[in-house]
Amino acid sequence: MSEYNFAYLDEQTKRMIRRAILKGLAVPGYQVPFASREMPMPYGWGTGGVQVSAATLTPEDTFKVIDQGADDTTNAVSIRKFFENTADVETTEETEKATVIQTRHRIPEAKLTEDQILVYQVPIPEPLRFLEPRETETRKMHSLEEYGLMHVKLYEDISQHGAISTSYAYPVKVSDRYVMDPSPIPKFDNPKLEMDAIQLFGAGREQRIYAVPPHTKVVSLDFEDYPFEATKADHPCDLCGAEDSYLDEVIMDDAGNRMFVCSDTDYCRSRRAAGHVGRLAEEGAA
């Protein structure tokens, strides 16, 4: 433990990142450039989120990491271990007990509170990048609020698929001003972006931090005649029976059998602990 400064990064770096976070909170949805550091993990494994978490954590915090909702996948386990080793903070898998939650591509099902901070890992922070490759141009578009291009992407979706087929990283407008990429969360999670907790977004390779303060208006872009819909698989969870949670589809054998389970493992576990039972859990009990 003593080999590392608290939470791995040196104090000056954390100070620099905190300034970027505060600026991001002051200008919701605006991408703040920051001097992203090399981390002891490859880009694409959450280096942005890890740096934001490192600058946010205090020794009193309880830390939780999820990867697509799960606490037990490689990415989640290694980042949790990283902070156990470098910050010696308490960790948990229970959403309610955590004070800082780092996430890759999901928002937990349980309602977050004002005492919590949600840190997103972001691969590509620029929502306009898909159609406009020039950074100079996208920055100008943000500064002048020229967001017609964002609707062009949705238009293309409808014209080619008959509906807005963008199902993750669905663009939102924050506080009536900046269009923001909410990171590749499923659009099912978009309505939850208006929440009580602080939301911080870190993109390590792209060197950007942005934020959504608590109780901030977040609107998913859409057309009047093709309104935004938060969709999920039309199925209850096969383990806990939940009908309101985002589901992962799991192929079980070569015969085409499959199951749907909550992507939020903690949510599923706590529901089963409370006695809720899904289709396959019933069979298993029987």
Binding site: G148, H151, Y155, F223, E224
Partner: peptide, 9 residues
């Protein structure tokens, strides 16, 4: 059209 605020597909 979308750039000047048209949002009816």
């Amino acid at each position: 059209l979308m750039a000047v605020g048209d949002c009816h597909y």
